[in-house]
Amino acid sequence: MKHLLSTDGLDPATATAVLDTADTLKRTLLGREVRKLPTLRGRTVVTLFYENSTRTRVSFEVAGKWMSADVINVSAGGSSVNKGESLRDTALTLSAAGADLVIVRHPASGAAHRLASWLEGTGTAVVNAGDGTHEHPTQALLDAATLRERLGEISGRRIAIVGDVLHSRVARSNVHLLAALGAEVVLVAPPTLLPTGVHSWPVTVSHDLDSELPALDAVMLLRVQAERMHGGFFPSAREYSIAYGLNERRLALLPEHAVVLHPGPMLRGMEIASAVADSPRAAITDQVRNGVHVRMAVLYHLLAGEEEAA
């Protein structure tokens, strides 16, 4: 693995290796007073965020610091990027200044791919921390880690992704990764929030959440962004919530063992009822916790080299 740009095309063996490393790291750090490994000492990791984010940035920063990397945060509000510097120039500057790895979040789909192509030959690795409506591969990896932890394994499990699939990078990354790991994926959404040609994806599609719930091992809810609510994609927040919100009645339709995931931030009362979000069935804080270990594993695989990781 040279960069982590998408889960589309990520082979199951590599994905599993990252998840196994995350497991190992988690166990290694468990109960330790000082959660610090020397693995990436002397390596420089830059987070380059063109969109607001709390959880993803913090998660990457903690992951880097627990591995003893030097982590530098660059945000669109606090550097030359808001003076109109191009993404290309910013990338080349960071690389020249010694970044071994750049973690980028950008509103443009494909931004991480572009960054990787501009940094070709510099030795700087790129991790996509969310590009437009394209992908968010570390989110999918941390979701997979959480599912593995809760369900034992992913292969053969039936997992629904519910909500705004059209605009969701989390959904795209999860569809590719879960399918590669052998899960059956069901997309549940109104037709206006499903991508064109979704029939060619390795998924089944449903508009009826109630009928899907009894057969699921996990349900993954997607955030509904405020601008979509006013964009005419569905008539009202109330109607969306009635059709696709996970409330207590629906929670009861899920099998006992089934897990509820949400990438956050949650719109309580809309996509997910508070009682569901706070129930032991929900693995939402586990996702955040696993996020750190998964991102440590990604940094490890990209910076500490393939041979050591294998």
């Binding site: 589309d8 990078r169 064109t196 040609g197």
Partner: peptide, 14 residues
């Protein structure tokens, strides 16, 4: 951003 079809949908291009 791109022709509305399977490819643009997968690439996250409107």
């Amino acid at each position: 951003q791109a022709h509305e079809g399977e490819r643009a949908a997968r690439l996250g291009l409107a």
